[in-house]
Design a protein around this nucleic acid. Structure first.
Lengths: 244, 244
DNA sequence: CGGTTTTTTGAGTACAATCAAGTAGGGTGG
DNA sequence: CCACCCTACTTGATTGTACTCAAAAAACCG
């Protein structure tokens, strides 16, 4: 059986008990009986098509979502209408925690490709977490992990050079793709160059040029959206440091 | 009685029941009896002096902390040793959630001035949260709020111009100072220009120059660390948009 | 295949970094 | 209390990176 993320279309009737991503997801430390309870509160939605919205800015917060396959981008608007892509979400990742605070979602979540989602009603999740300490801990851990991920991005964005930002971005995607069952070296970008440039605070043309430079220096092989990391350790060094 | 944040030195024997910041903090929605239980698990530590460490990178995570007065900066190091200030924390804010995930702190927290802290043992907090639904909800909300705050910073850092970043930074501080009982227009920066430049991914000199430009344009009055926002709506527009 | 979107590449420019002094402010000790 | 030091901050001149404008090439889609 192939991993879920390799098959963009996945069964509507999937269950946590058989999901290959459960080790990344909330049920990670649940015992069989508990897992059945958890699985029972999940709603599997029909797959989202490219461009579809999972939730919109201002929508009432009532669920968090786990990605079973595909990918999402989360877009926030400021009052002047400028949009900013704050997150890309990959299979096994959880979406929507930032809505808990005041009860509505602060941005849009768009599917970047055909994407299958597990919908987890937050009120049920909270009730279940009250009874199952492992689930509660995992919930805190998941939120904490998203915070740490955000801090990583904050560090990345305060890097001065475009090269550092893009190297960091490519490395980070590699790590996350590997975590959900891909090769650590080869993946396909789900987002456009425009999305990348917006996310990293760079001009579209700069992204294109930096990628070309990386290609010319044989750090990565990039054709369109297909990425192959040729020299991970050099790319990593570049992301952290600055020197080639 | 003056607000806690206006008196840098505060009593060691403070209690949630009388704390002026409790409306910002975890006990916000607790009833009297519950508040007593909550107050009982808090440890009040002797004040930190300027430069003191609340926790260090790699320290075992066992507490979250609430700031009663003063301020902290959180500094993260990458593997190359570059440091990055990911957060400044003000009175009424909670510190340390990012340590939950894998059980240790990912950065240093330094006091930027004399700072009083409430130490909240996380295991006790979790146990208490199991019994008190309001506390549990508030805990989730607090974490969610920190996420949202991080997303705001991410948006700020992906702004292209130095003016936008610094305008956004000044506005954000004004909002947070106001929340903890200060004027919305006037405050004193607890951090150095170097700290600001590091946090915003700019050069120290750029921070100085932009502040001078804001002063020349009568957007703000700045003398040393004392800030007075003269034209909040213009500054806000600048932060969101770009135009003067 | 034509039309649209996405990506690449080029030329010129602007903004912020760097290098380099110089000034103010805060603390210590004589 | 003043001289001193050290750090924090300001200001100036120059350089370089990344942005903008512009247009061509490639990929995508019906």
């Amino acid at each position: 059986m192939t991993i879920a993320s390799a098959t963009p279309y996945c069964s509507h009737g999937a269950h946590c008990q058989t999901c290959s991503l459960s080790s990344l997801c909330l049920p990670v430390s649940l015992k069989t009986g508990e897992l059945d309870h958890f699985d029972a509160i999940i709603k599997r939605r029909p797959p989202l098509a490219t461009g579809d919205c999972l939730f919109r800015q201002g929508d009432h917060f009532s669920n968090v979502y786990a990605i079973r396959s595909g990918s999402l981008k989360q877009v926030n608007f400021d009052h002047a209408g400028n949009e900013q892509i704050t997150h890309f979400f990959l299979p096994g990742e959880l979406v929507g925690f930032d809505g808990i605070d005041d009860g509505y979602h602060t941005g849009y979540a768009h599917a970047m490709e055909t994407t299958c989602i597990c919908e987890i009603p937050f009120s049920h999740l909270e009730t279940l977490a009250e009874r199952i300490p492992q689930l509660r801990s995992q919930l805190f851990r998941s939120m904490s992990r998203e915070m740490k991920e955000d801090h990583r991005l904050i560090r990345l964005l305060s890097c001065k050079t475009a090269d550092e930002r893009i190297a960091g971005f490519l490395i980070n995607l590699a790590v996350r793709f590997q975590r959900c069952g891909h090769s650590s070296k080869t993946y396909r970008l789900p987002m456009t160059r425009t999305d990348i440039s917006n996310h990293l605070g760079l001009a579209l043309e700069t992204v294109s040029r930096v990628l070309k430079r990386f290609r010319d220096n044989h750090l990565v092989a990039i054709r369109g959206r297909d990425v192959q990391i040729l020299q991970p350790q050099l790319l990593y060094k570049l992301a952290e440091n600055g020197s080639p």
